[in-house]
């Protein structure tokens, strides 16, 4: 009996963790899918944008001791600025080179950002100024303060972003362009000018996601974002490339699936170190059987 109760509460805990991690994947995956769908770049530096966000937050939170909300805002502004800057300096002048060429450029960009961080910030693990041992009992789950913050960030950011996409003119425009660029162009939408906003959204969400990921993990180093890059690309494919709501849903689903797969009653539970493998298996199965993503329509590929 006790064991069953324990397993039940463990499951709730895993679902909570999964939703928080899923929210991180959803927010970053959303940015990546908009960039891919609208800017025609599979951004292999997206993870490194996240890492940079985590370090900006570290700078604000630990080095300059601002409060968490200020740190979060500062982070989001900084990574959005980075993303927009690189858009105008590097990626926009090279548009039209083809997806593979642009993606290779982002691979190089990722190498530069990641290793510059290693040189500047060092390889030692960092952590934010949160009490890592304190526990807050929310009734159904017990969480650390850091987890509470990320939970709050997740339940505000995901619905806010979804609402922005659903109802604001900018959100509608971005979805239209991502869905069918040619049609959007014919309808008089400035498909080039929208790049600025796409990168603002993608950069801001990457920064927020990076800081959240660093919080969830407890400690982090300059490989933080690169380690989850492939999960983000999985989310993009899972949701259907360019499908904003698909990415949000795909991220949440992937987060929960990966966490819950470790639950012992689930085939004895997948060992934690194999969690990413679960993600990759999902991706490969998806590519085989449903390449258009969970929400995507079958198109001529």
């Amino acid at each position: 009996m006790l064991n069953e109760w324990h397993m039940g509460s463990l499951l709730l805990q895993l679902i909570y963790n999964g939703l928080v991690e899923g929210a991180i994947l959803a927010l970053t995956g959303l940015g990546a899918t908009l960039v891919w769908g609208i800017q025609r770049v599979a951004n292999f530096a997206h993870g490194d944008y996240m890492t940079l966000g985590a370090y900006v937050a570290f700078l604000l939170d630990v080095t300059w001791s601002t409060n968490p909300v200020v740190a979060a805002i500062g982070t989001v502004v900084a990574t959005a600025a980075l993303a927009v800057g690189l858009h105008f300096i590097l990626l926009r002048p090279l548009r039209g080179r083809g997806l593979v060429a642009l993606s290779l450029i982002t691979v190089g960009l990722g190498l530069v950002l990641r290793n510059a961080l290693f040189l500047v910030a060092g390889s030692q693990p960092r952590q934010y100024a949160f009490n890592q041992t304190a526990v807050i009992d929310l009734g159904f789950v017990r969480v650390a303060p850091a987890e509470l913050w990320t939970g709050i960030a997740a339940i505000t950011a995901v619905p806010a972003v979804a609402a922005m996409l659903a109802w604001t003119p900018l959100g509608k425009t971005m979805r239209a362009v991502a869905d069918n660029r040619d049609l959007a162009e014919i309808s008089g939408i400035d498909t080039d000018g929208i790049g600025l906003y796409v990168w603002i959204v993608a950069g801001a969400l990457a920064g927020l996601g990076g800081a959240m990921l660093a919080l969830v993990q407890g400690t982090f180093d300059p490989n933080l974002g690169f380690n989850v890059l492939f999960l983000i690309l999985t989310v993009v494919v899972l949701g259907g490339i360019g499908n904003a709501f698909g990415a949000l849903l795909g991220g949440l689903v992937l987060g929960v699936v990966m966490e819950v797969s470790t639950w012992p009653p689930f085939f004895g539970g997948v060992p934690t170190q194999y969690q990413p493998v679960v993600g990759f298996v999902v991706l490969i199965l998806l590519l085989m059987f449903r390449p258009q993503g969970i929400l995507g329509r079958a198109r001529v590929l």
Binding site: L90, P93, L94, R97, A101, L104, I105, V107, G108, L109, G110, L111, V112, R114, N115, A116, F118, L119, S123
Partner: peptide
Amino acid sequence: YLRLLIVGLVLVLLMA
């Protein structure tokens, strides 16, 4: 890290 940074930089510059 410096080596990888240079590799990345060369990749970007050449492609660009």
